[in-house]
Design a binder for these strands. Structure first.
Lengths: 140, 140
DNA sequence: TCTCAACCTTCACATGGGGGTAAGGTCAAG
DNA sequence: CTTGACCTTACCCCCATGTGAAGGTTGAGA
């Protein structure tokens, strides 16, 4: 199987398949005489696993951990669960930030008339903001 | 005022101040004989505006638009509102993706025993996933 | 056999929003 | 005159890709 076949079967791009190889997420497959990468079904399964994990937002590093656990018959499911729970916490933190941004922004939008007049509460509140709900949190 | 004073007053780093200049978000300030950037209160106000907008998650490009509108006395608040609403939609889209990821991940976690046994529903569902709720949406 | 499209390869650079570090110039106090 | 805290530019790093260049390979048809 050439790289495009694998890409089609996994829903990844050719570039992503090469990228995952270059960062060590998958092993370098054997090459044909012309230097083409030659993939097996096993590679396809692994890349599909990666694609699914990316869909869930796992980082490359986390997927590396998951792949190690996947191929280790002596793993404890506790370890897998720990990686997933860590990621869930990260998702939750991002969600909280987004919620905070959204509520502030929505409030500001509701205060802007949105007409032909230059007066705008959004701009005003961006000038002098701290009294209006900014907490000094980290940027996203 | 030197760059560190501005950074302290706006909560930005020196790097960020220079960065915003290099990408054209703010004008290059005059320099002292030694080449030090010399800032005025006006620059501080502008950078504080930028910092607040970043807190709300606006992109550099969007902030550029907001700054143009800010300094245009003939603006319509409608235009400002449009930028903010566009951004709100983007935040909402990100939120939906996060929610989707979170719910799938939380469900998978709940199905993993998390003990010493190698059997793990998380790994299983990452192998063969489409029947378990994946929609083929874009990655985040 | 020649050609052409559709593959494949590597390399380098872009994105966003900066962080880190280096190598050097400058300023003010002691 | 030294020391330390400034300042400058310039480079590479992160993440997870996308884009494009420049070139080699393969297979099918004319």
């Amino acid at each position: 199987m050439n790289i495009s076949d694998v890409a089609r079967r996994t829903g990844l791009s050719n570039k992503m398949v090469r990228h995952y190889e270059s960062v060590g997420l998958i092993q370098s497959p054997p090459r044909s005489a012309a230097g083409y990468r030659q993939y097996s079904q096993r590679n396809v399964d692994e890349l599909a696993f990666i694609a699914h994990a990316r869909t869930l937002g796992f980082s490359i590093a986390q997927i590396g951990d998951l792949l190690s656990l996947r191929q280790d018959p002596h793993r404890a499911s506790r370890e897998v669960k720990a990686v997933a729970q860590q990621h869930l916490q990260e998702l939750d933190a991002r969600m909280q930030q987004l919620k905070h941004m959204k509520s502030l922004l929505a409030e500001m939008i509701s205060q802007c008339p949105g007409d032909d007049d230059p007066h705008c509460a959004i701009l005003q509140r961006l000038e002098t903001s701290d009294s209006n709900g900014f907490t000094g949190d980290n940027l996203s």
